[in-house]
């Protein structure tokens, strides 16, 4: 009997947590589409998320492109198919590695920062203070972060794509001895519009997920420094897992046949 009760209690807790999260998401999204919009804050978040994540994302995709060229070369050499290296690099980067790596890195950098900042604001009563100063904390804190992350991640991924492909090119030309013109030719020949666009759509979804997790956990942070620490960890872990899950779902959606 106690066992059944324990299961029941866990299930109810799960339901109420899900409900709370759904409510938060609904409220956050509805504030995104209703005026007013704090432009100044939006711009600051866009710079913070977009511009300052460039080094991290650039480095990650650069080395991803490089190692991809190296690995696929050793693999394809066994079938005398070395010519496919450039194609493999550009397709893997634009479709998968660009968005996923950028998403995971930004989750670590930006998602954690959001959760820590909002969590600190929660425990030091700054969020309550916002409310007493006739300012909606959703509009002031959450909307700019959600919009900025959703808009900036595709930009980051686009830059990351270019850098990743360039990394592959460097290894291909200077280490594996490809002819530069041929390498570029092979990159372009098989690239379709959809490859890039699907990656950018993924990036937008990942950006939304990162900001939502960072804001949700930070906003509902428990009291004290330990509460903020827990919120930060939860934000990064949940965003990372959701990114991988959504990556699979979106790939299935885009390239089902």
């Amino acid at each position: 009997m106690t066992f059944v009760a324990a299961i029941g209690r866990t299930f109810l807790l799960f339901l109420s947590a899900t409900g709370r999260f759904a409510l938060f998401t609904g409220q956050a999204v509805s504030h995104c589409v209703r005026p007013p919009l704090y432009l100044r804050l939006l711009v600051r978040q866009m710079v913070d998320i977009g511009y300052y994540s460039l080094p991290v994302v650039g480095l990650t995709t650069l080395f991803a492109g490089m190692v991809l060229a190296l690995q696929s070369y050793t693999g394809f050499a066994r079938f005398n198919a070395e010519g496919a290296v450039a194609t493999v690099v550009i397709l893997s980067i634009t479709r998968e590695l660009g968005p996923v790596l950028a998403g995971l890195m930004v989750a670590g950098r930006v998602g954690a920062a959001m959760a820590a900042e909002l969590g600190t604001m929660r425990v030091t009563e700054q969020i309550d203070a916002l409310t007493t100063l006739s300012t909606n904390p959703f509009k002031y804190l959450i909307t700019p972060r959600l919009l900025a992350a959703t808009l900036m991640l595709p930009c980051l991924v686009l830059v990351g794509d270019v850098i990743g492909v360039f990394g592959g090119y460097l290894v291909g030309v200077y280490r594996l001895g490809f002819n530069p013109a041929n390498y570029i030719q092979q990159s372009w020949d098989f690239l379709e519009y959809m490859d890039v666009v699907s990656g950018l759509v993924k990036a937008a979804v990942f950006g939304f997920v990162i900001a939502l997790m960072g804001c949700y956990h930070g906003f509902n942070s428990e009291r004290g420094a330990a509460g903020v620490g827990k919120a930060t960890t939860n934000a990064v872990v949940s965003a990372s897992i959701l990114i991988l899950i959504f990556n699979y779902l979106l790939t299935g959606l885009f390239f089902a046949d």
């Binding site: 604001m121 009563e125 700054q126 203070a129 916002l130 409310t131 007493t132 100063l133 006739s134």
Partner: peptide
């Protein structure tokens, strides 16, 4: 609620300044 907030000012125990 917004109408209530417009009428009220609050000094928080810990200050709660926006850092």
């Amino acid at each position: 609620r917004a109408a209530v907030m417009d009428k009220c000012g609050m000094l928080f125990q810990g200050g709660a300044l926006f850092d």
